[in-house]
Write a protein that binds this DNA or RNA. Structure first.
Lengths: 163, 163
DNA sequence: ATTTACTCTATCTAGTAAGTAGGGTATATA
DNA sequence: TATATACCCTACTTACTAGATAGAGTAAAT
């Protein structure tokens, strides 16, 4: 069992980060690591990153429509980054696929929606606590670029690779 | 629309904090505010906090089984806190209903599960970023008690109450 | 005894994440 | 111009879950 929830939630795994967002980040990191500027095929990316190919297709298309990737059709085609990896922030990617970072809509900066059951939001303790969480999360994700992650991984003391 | 997700996620509202956890926190705060030490009826709590009564019943029962509340049956019965509000932490409540705080299982401290698609976790950039988020969230929620929230709300400059 | 109010199990429903299917279209190369 | 390649796009399927409801059972107070 993945979590400790007691009452009803007994799924094997609860993901707050969707697979879509996760796959998107992995794909972007892989493209950022691509040495030459050659476009990378969906099928290659899917195999390397162990992502279902048709699913990855959807994701890359979304990233392209957001101007984060560019594509070339036909033979020799594929995807490549449309921007410098230092200008692609994790926060943007996560919001794009998973929506606002705030745990509750009433604590969201970018997509505020009041709670139906709230008597007085100004003194709502739950909102206060969740706003703190949102702010901390945003501070991290909106200041972490794909390039920064690349760099951190490169300098990480990795044990001997498992495979 | 509540969020910005582009591809598939088009729910009106995505909650990372479940209603259950939110209702639990609201109920605990209300019980902590209860002046006399009299037990509070589910029905009263439900009406005051605008929570579906039968749903609240489940939630309070869960809290009782965790030793956070105590109950008295029969006439004059109801629920009251089993501990000092200063010893009830938001992190515990959230984990109880929603599971681990980490956005991905491989970044969880309390319920670690590796990713199926990960080649080398030690150098997984997604995990690195999400671990940072988890740690920041845990730092906030595991250090915020019900009593602390009460206090913060009490000292908040609230505009004239809306109702 | 009887009312009150918590205890517990079962069930329902709408919505969604994750993934699949398949035809359409643009482009490079011969 | 033919043809293979590889992206483009819409629709669909499936399993699961959050959120909520129903109702019978049980303990306690008066």
């Amino acid at each position: 069992m993945y979590h400790h929830a007691i009452i009803l939630a007994h799924s094997p795994v609860k993901l707050m980060l969707s697979k879509k967002a996760k796959y998107a980040l992995k794909a972007l990191l892989a493209l950022a690591d691509n040495p030459d500027d050659e476009p990378v095929r969906i099928s290659d990316l899917a195999r390397e990153q162990r992502i279902p190919p048709k699913f990855l297709e959807l994701i890359l298309l979304g990233l392209k429509n957001q101007g984060i990737l560019q594509s070339r059709k036909g033979k020799g085609g594929g995807y490549r980054l449309a921007r410098n990896p230092a200008d692609i922030y994790v926060g943007q990617i996560v919001r794009m696929f998973d929506g606002p970072l705030a745990p509750v809509p009433c604590a969201s900066q970018t997509a505020y929606v009041p709670c139906a059951d709230c008597r007085d939001e100004a003194v709502c303790a739950v909102r206060l606590a969740m706003k703190e969480v949102r702010d901390a999360t945003a501070k991290i994700l909106d200041n972490t670029s794909i390039a920064a992650l690349q760099q951190r991984v490169a300098t990480t003391q990795s044990p001997v690779a498992i495979e």
